[in-house]
Every structure is written in C-alpha cells, then in structure tokens.
Simulated assay, not measured.
Amino acid sequence: MVFSRDTEIGLVTAAALVNTLGAEEDRLSTLADLDAFVTHWEFTGALRRDDAELQGVRALRPVLRGLWAARDPDVVAAGVNALLTDARALPQLVRHDGWDWHWHATPHDAPLATRMAVEAAMALADVVRGGELDRLRVCAGEDCADLVVDLSRNRSRRYCDSGCGNRANVAAYRARKAAS
C-alpha cells in the first residue's frame, strides 16, 4: 500500500475534476454536469445546486492543475497550505529544521505538551486510518511495561529497546543448555 484508500480516492477524484476541463470541451459547464460528477464520485454533504457553487468548483480546477503539475515540493506545500488556510483547516504541511514534509496542527508557539499531544494524536490517527493498531504493543519482556511500535515488515517486533529481547534470548539459551 503506497497511500491510504482515501488518499488514492482523493487523488483520482482531483484528477477527474481537473480533467473535466478538456482541451476540446468543458464537461462541467452546467448544474446537471456538476450533479452528475458529485453523484459519480459519491461526494457527501450539503449541496446548494446553484451557479455560485458550480463556478466555485470550476475555479478550483486550474488551482489543482497547477499543484498537480508543480514539481517543486515547496510550491505544492505552499498551495496545499493555502487551500487549507482558505478552508480554515488547522493541519499544515511543513518542512523545517532538517525534517522533511510533515503535518503541524498547532501554532509554533503553543506549549510543548500541547504540541507533543497533538503530534501524537495525529500520528495515532494515521495508525488508526491505516488499520495498523496491532503495531502498537506493550513489551513482551518479563517485568517490562514499555510501549513498542512494531515497524518491522513482518510485524514481529515484541520487545522494547531496553534490552528485553536480549535478556529473553539469553534466558532461553540458558534454559536449553540446562535441559541438555
């Protein structure tokens, strides 16, 4: 899985929307066209079904095309951030301090605990959205309650980074030696 399903659908739908503005004809020129598009792509939520709504959707197409065609991540990020800001969304795509692109949903001057809580919540939201909650565990080491995030390909990580795995392996080795 390269993207989550909703991301894939969002990309396919954005492309389809931009593609309604064909080289030969505009396939989103009437309210009936808009209704057909909304129905086909299963958009939910309130619909005004008026000319202002149609013109707003049509105006979005060149913006999306520009973002789609841009090869510079700074340009795309700025465009994404502008769309989010215009919509009054809180998440922001940022890159700073040697970190590549990631989400921020709090102002940079928010209290550290708040920023940490929000970043953890956003990461957990992705785990939930990805259906990967089974990757969040408690260490299998005896007398250890540390949390483990299993990022292994085969989902086999059972121990924390505090040496519990080594201790379990040594104990198993000694038990085998004692039994022979």
Rank of each mutant, 00 (worst) to 15 (best):
32 A>G: 15
7 T>R: 02
155 R>E: 04
4 S>V: 13
133 L>Q: 12
73 P>M: 11
90 L>S: 13
38 V>K: 03
110 A>I: 02
159 Y>P: 00
76 V>S: 02
54 L>D: 04
111 P>N: 04
148 V>T: 04
33 D>T: 03
128 V>M: 03
126 D>E: 15
27 R>P: 01
180 S>E: 15
99 W>K: 11
108 H>R: 12
44 T>S: 12
91 P>W: 01
49 R>K: 09
126 D>R: 08
97 D>L: 13
128 V>D: 14
41 W>P: 01
45 G>L: 06
94 V>I: 11
136 L>K: 00
94 V>N: 01
27 R>Y: 15
180 S>Y: 15
139 C>N: 00
131 G>Y: 04
90 L>G: 09
25 E>P: 03
50 D>G: 01
123 A>Y: 05
57 V>T: 10
51 D>L: 06
112 L>H: 03
9 I>L: 13
142 E>K: 10
107 P>E: 14
95 R>V: 08
140 A>L: 04
83 L>S: 01
33 D>C: 04
59 A>E: 13
19 N>K: 11
41 W>Y: 14
66 G>W: 06
150 D>W: 02
15 A>I: 10
14 A>H: 07
57 V>Y: 09
126 D>P: 00
152 S>W: 12
173 Y>I: 14
56 G>M: 11
88 R>P: 00
151 L>R: 07
5 R>I: 13
173 Y>M: 15
136 L>H: 00
136 L>F: 02
67 L>T: 02
62 P>D: 08
73 P>C: 11
5 R>L: 13
135 R>C: 05
19 N>F: 13
82 A>C: 09
46 A>C: 03
130 G>E: 14
114 T>W: 09
152 S>L: 00
75 V>G: 02
175 A>W: 05
28 L>I: 04
173 Y>V: 14
21 L>V: 05
83 L>M: 07
92 Q>T: 10
56 G>N: 14
35 D>F: 13
29 S>D: 12
139 C>L: 03
167 R>H: 02
163 G>D: 08
29 S>A: 15
74 D>C: 03
143 D>V: 05
169 N>F: 07
167 R>M: 00
175 A>I: 01
130 G>Y: 09
33 D>W: 02
46 A>L: 12
26 D>F: 08
43 F>H: 08
48 R>E: 13
114 T>Y: 05
11 L>Y: 11
152 S>C: 07
8 E>V: 14
59 A>W: 15
39 T>E: 12
69 A>P: 03
120 A>E: 10
111 P>D: 04
165 G>Y: 07
36 A>R: 14
147 L>M: 12
61 R>A: 11
